[in-house]
Design a protein around this nucleic acid. Structure first.
Lengths: 165, 165
DNA sequence: CAGAATTGTTAGACATGTCTAACAATTATA
DNA sequence: TATAATTGTTAGACATGTCTAACAATTCTG
């Protein structure tokens, strides 16, 4: 319950800017203030202002009216945000069966606040159910049945565990 | 990626205050500014200021130097935050095997940003693995093996699925 | 019950991050 | 290439939520 700001390196906002710049810059594409502003749903002056802060921290290279580019350090931070984002999206979509849009929205929020430990475990969970056929057949199918019918499938009781031959 | 503030009823901060007041008030206990401030790790003037806002919204009853109490509406909001908090804590602790302290911290953050759909699914997931013995035996035990050894347990491969008799 | 200790409030500063309005630079095009 | 359209920046307002310092009320205690 205690809210003792865990001294994150970056705020959620700044992480969003870095993430967006990395995504827009994929494949050496030129990144523009306008694009960033549209992607994040903010006005251009907000972007300019964020770029100024990120430049001061040497996470972004940016000169007036000029190019926008992540520094190696900025890229490192961005990659990490993107890694969390992807793992969370996979979790919501693949493990919980959430529609992709909602999965994305939740990932966007949670990526900024989740602890490294939970993040790691969550990623492993997704890996696990993807990799383990037993996980896949026993978990998702019965889980989906449960979601749909609100009660456990027939073979899901203490008795059936033993009885099965 | 778009950050179009989903018009939450309350900000994360205000939700934290409501949640804390509800928790401190359990069993008709008197709630004090000092306690709230300690619980949330903020100074007392921050609490006074938050109480003023919440009073204006009629979520809290508070008179100068007097009692602090949730209105029925405030209680409704607080209960909902607490419900999310508990479900998230259970998920991290019971499903992912995270230590209780970290589970709490993550719940505290995520409770303010997760979508209703994901929240519901996540709760159902925890219910499911708690209720379904097949879920329990097939999922957590192999999952834990995977966490510990970094690779799948022996009976977890396409071959073994068929072979098992 | 009076002074001391504690608790609570007010006023106002500050940080973050957003916005609008006005202006400047760049780019496209007639 | 001059002008129009677009893109980007600056300046400054505003909202949220925190803090410190100073003061006020309440409660404890000798």
């Amino acid at each position: 319950m205690v809210r003792q700001e865990a001294q994150r390196e970056q705020t959620a906002s700044m992480e969003d800017y870095l993430e967006t710049i990395a995504n827009l810059g994929e494949g050496r594409k030129v990144v523009r203030v306008k694009q960033i502003s549209e992607m994040l749903g903010v006005k251009m002056p907000s972007v300019t202002s964020a770029l100024k802060k990120l430049s001061e921290q040497e996470l972004v290279e940016h000169e007036r009216y000029g190019h926008i580019k992540l520094t190696p350090e900025g890229d490192k931070v961005a990659r990490d945000v993107i890694r969390r984002h992807k793992a969370l999206t996979r979790f919501f979509a693949q493990a919980l069966g959430i529609d992709h849009e909602t999965a994305e929205e939740d990932a966007c929020k949670i990526e900024h606040v989740i602890s490294p430990l939970s993040m790691e475990r969550l990623a492993k969970f997704v890996e696990f159910i993807g990799a383990c056929p037993l996980g896949r057949t026993n978990f998702p199918s019965r889980y989906e049945y449960y979601l749909e019918h609100g009660e456990l499938p027939q073979d899901c009781s203490n008795r059936s565990v033993k009885k099965r031959k």
